[in-house]
């Protein structure tokens, strides 16, 4: 093992320029992928924020006793899709309307009787904030005896769904393309390092080195370069994020887990790139 470490260190020391070039290339390809990842993460977060507003509102029949409302609310809260249920009384509904709908303030001001019904505002859990689930919950609410009418902004939720699907599909395709480009570039860089040492590999074979023995330092080198490139890419992405956040728009950065995953992905790509490059070289000579 110590020999593998020594050979790997030697490889870095003997070709510092080429090593630096590979690390930088890996870093920049991962950085481009990272920038895309940042966009994806932020779009997802934005959609998540909007989706938080997906709500099913059950308007109650006039004169429903409070006790019946409380019982129904408890039942609804037990639905697997439901996060919380809030009882909005008629007075609260009016107060809310006066506060939120300022342009109609005059109308609400002059009312003699309150025309607004009481309601149960049902918030769904994050995973259930789509058309089908909202519709299913609405249907079950409508079947309750105390409920007069149910609304959940169907068209709006449908649009949100479509947006989510498009973002998901574009994200997957573009992300896969970026990842592929990164892998190809990184593979080429590692192939250069292998070719740079082809004479050495030939000599190693002549003195009886096994392919496994020849491969090991290259694999370790690939992993190290990938990890270093990954760390650099996360740093560059953070720089990019900080600039965007300061001058363009409020954005959020990767979570620690996502950043770690990015660095690990660098190491993994480095490993696979070396495995393929060295394997191909060893088979072809």
């Amino acid at each position: 093992m110590s020999l593998v470490l020594r050979e790997t260190a030697l490889a870095f020391r003997r070709a510092p320029l080429l090593s630096a070039l590979s690390v930088t290339t890996i870093a920049f390809s991962l950085f481009v992928f990272g920038l895309f990842g940042l966009v994806a993460v932020n779009i997802q977060r934005a959609i998540g924020n909007v989706a938080e507003r997906v709500e099913v509102v059950a308007y109650l029949k006039r004169g429903t006793p409070l006790q019946a409302v409380a019982l129904a609310a408890a039942d609804i809260e037990a639905f697997p899709e439901v996060e919380s249920v809030q009882h909005v009384t008629e007075q609260e509904a009016l107060a809310r309307a006066r506060r939120d709908l300022r342009e109609f303030q005059d109308i609400f001001q002059d009312l003699e009787t309150n025309p607004l019904p009481a309601s149960l505002d049902v918030r769904l859990r994050p995973a259930f904030r789509d058309v089908q689930r909202a519709a299913a919950v609405a249907e079950r609410l409508a079947a309750l005896a105390i409920v007069d009418d149910v609304r959940y902004g169907r068209e709006w939720v449908e649009k949100l769904d479509r947006l989510r699907n498009i973002a998901g599909a574009v994200g997957t395709v573009v992300g896969a393309a970026f990842a592929l480009v990164a892998i190809i570039i990184i593979g080429t860089t590692i192939r250069m390092a292998v070719l740079h040492r082809s004479r050495e590999i030939a000599i190693m074979r002549l003195v009886g080195a096994t392919d496994g023995f020849i491969r090991r330092p290259f694999l370790l080198e690939g992993i190290l370069k990938g990890l270093l490139g990954g760390v650099l890419a996360v740093g560059l992405s953070y720089g990019g994020y900080a600039l965007i956040d300061a001058y363009l728009l409020r954005a959020s950065f990767f979570t620690a887990a996502q950043a770690t995953l990015g660095v690990a992905a660098g190491g993994f790509i480095g490993l696979v790139g070396s495995l393929v490059s060295v394997g191909r070289h060893l088979r072809s000579t």
Partner: peptide
């Protein structure tokens, strides 16, 4: 590789590793 460890091979162009000393080349 097992066969080559039982052979010694010498070439016209020496085939030494340029970035290793004489001792390191042999130790290799």
């Amino acid at each position: 590789p097992r066969l080559r460890r039982r052979l010694g091979i010498v070439f016209q162009d020496f085939q030494l590793l340029e970035d290793r000393t004489a001792e390191e080349n042999v130790a290799f």
